[in-house]
Amino acid sequence: MDIRFEEASASFEGRVALHPLTLSLSERRIGVIGLNGSGKTTFARMINGLVKPSEGRVIVNGIDTAADAERVRAQVGFIFQNPQNQIILPILKEDIALGLKAQKLSKEAMDAAVAAILSRFGIPHLAERRAHELSGGELQLAALASVLVTRPPILILDEPTNQLDLKNRDLVERTIATLDEHVIVISHDLPLVADFDRVLLFDQGRLVADGTPGEVMARYRELAA
């Protein structure tokens, strides 16, 4: 993985969400923390081209996000805060198959890929279920399956444990630990990123700390105090 921010900034209607940032990411597990409104979600959305830089460039595995968002999205999967809004078709297996449509697979190959990703997350029994009947933890696993079925090498998770009870939170934590993909996790849930390779701390649209979880979390506690 090679993600590079080159003097990249983002503003919306004149308000700066992220000040010019230069940074390069290659670690396998990266945590992003910060108070609400610190710019961390904007930072994450810039990595897969959902937010394009107002100035500067963001390069993901050699692809400029402003020039070719579609190819960047094939590289970077994104799990949003509310898994409820992530499943968009009524039946789970139909939803998962939707992401594969662009690859023009045969029906057999598509069914096989859907079945494989469901068993990878231990939820083959949910294939025929309706999305609105799933529990929070099941929805989060389903969202992971729907995004990883197209095999993006990089995965961003925005507050993946936000709305989960303790049991489902632990399930999601264990699942993240088993992922082979490069993972970038945005979270208020500090224990979730405590053993990550690198943690970034944002405050008021600026990167204010960058290092091992221990150092950065200490700084975050000072900031929040």
């Binding site: 579609e70 999205r73 809004n85 662009a102 729907s146 995004v147 197209t150």
Partner: peptide, 10 residues
Amino acid sequence: EIAAAIDARG
């Protein structure tokens, strides 16, 4: 968020 999810999945 739904629209972003659709776009993010291409």
